[in-house]
């Protein structure tokens, strides 16, 4: 469990990126911070692994105040995946994946062996192991980034718009892949995005942010969709319009669901048994 207690971050230039922020991030679930650019998502994420230190307030991980932990050691036990993969361009794929274990003192041979297994885990062919990141496609680079984030087998995985820079088809694959991974690995994932669809797809808990790290609403995707707390949230999730505002229309051959512009969006079926997930 990660807990923010009245956390404020004011940068030296006077920008208050996050003001008086309180949140509990449950273990082994995916929490998504979603908000427009500049709403403080990256700052919040970076305060978890002490890339950024709060001006006031505290952050604890499983009850331990992070300000008492050594930043470098803390970062090595928290996976971090960022946009544009953040891979080291002068390390081969395999070396990139093995980076953190090697920093932690795992012998190179063993770290590389385990890195190969991780390539399988994220759905990359082992033949890519000896390539440099510049020799991969954007989607492949992101997979390597995820493999690197998982390499030290961290309990916590921080992901900052990891799929923001790849094209929509590849993004959709990566999202599905992450859902599969999360089902198998059961990490505490904190995911940042500005894309509300991505947030609803991936999040068990979704945190909608306004400028200044102000929480507009926290809840599961269905809670938020069913009852947006205010107009800001309603607008942000597009509840009033577009493909989320579905209505039933009767046609000659049966009832269908249409979106606000009248396009067929689906059909109504009897509810299935609740999924085990």
């Amino acid at each position: 469990m990660i807990e923010f207690r009245s956390v404020t971050k004011k940068f030296p230039d006077g920008t208050v990126a996050v003001r008086d922020f309180d949140l509990v991030i449950p273990s082994r679930k995916t929490t998504v911070f979603v908000g427009s650019s500049g709403s403080g998502k990256t700052t919040l994420l970076r305060m978890i692994n002490r890339m950024v230190d709060p001006t006031s307030g505290s952050i604890s991980i499983d009850g331990e105040d992070t300000s008492t932990l050594e930043p470098v050691a803390l970062r090595r036990r928290i996976g971090y995946v960022m946009q544009n993969s953040g891979l080291l361009p002068h390390f081969k794929v395999i070396e990139n994946v093995a980076t953190v274990p090697i920093l932690n003192g795992v012998p190179r041979r063993r770290a590389h062996q385990e890195a190969l297994t991780l390539l399988d885990t994220v759905g990359l062919d082992r033949s890519l192991a000896d390539r440099y990141p510049s020799q991969l496609s954007g989607g492949q680079q992101q997979r390597v980034g995820v493999a690197r984030g998982l390499a030290a087998d961290p309990n916590i995985l921080l992901m900052d718009e990891p799929f923001g820079a790849v094209d929509p088809i590849v993004r959709a694959e990566l999202q599905v892949e992450l859902i599969r991974l999360q089902r198998d690995l059961d990490k505490t994932v904190v995911f940042v995005t500005h894309d509300i669809d991505e947030a609803f797809l991936l999040g068990d808990q979704v945190v909608i942010l306004e400028t200044g790290g102000l929480i507009a609403q926290v809840g599961s995707p269905s809670e938020i969709m069913a009852a947006p707390t205010n107009e800001f949230v309603a607008n942000f999730i597009g509840a009033e319009r577009g493909k989320r505002a579905l209505s039933i229309r009767s046609t000659g051959s049966g009832d269908i669901l249409v979106d606000s512009s009248g396009r067929a969006a689906g059909i109504l079926v009897a509810p299935t048994a609740p999924d085990a997930e």
């Binding site: 470098v72 960022m82 920093l103």
Partner: peptide, 15 residues
């Protein structure tokens, strides 16, 4: 040196 790369190196735990 690309500051993104530097940041990501720090983030994964290079001292």
């Amino acid at each position: 040196v690309d500051s993104n790369v530097e940041q990501s190196a720090s983030a994964v735990g290079f001292s």
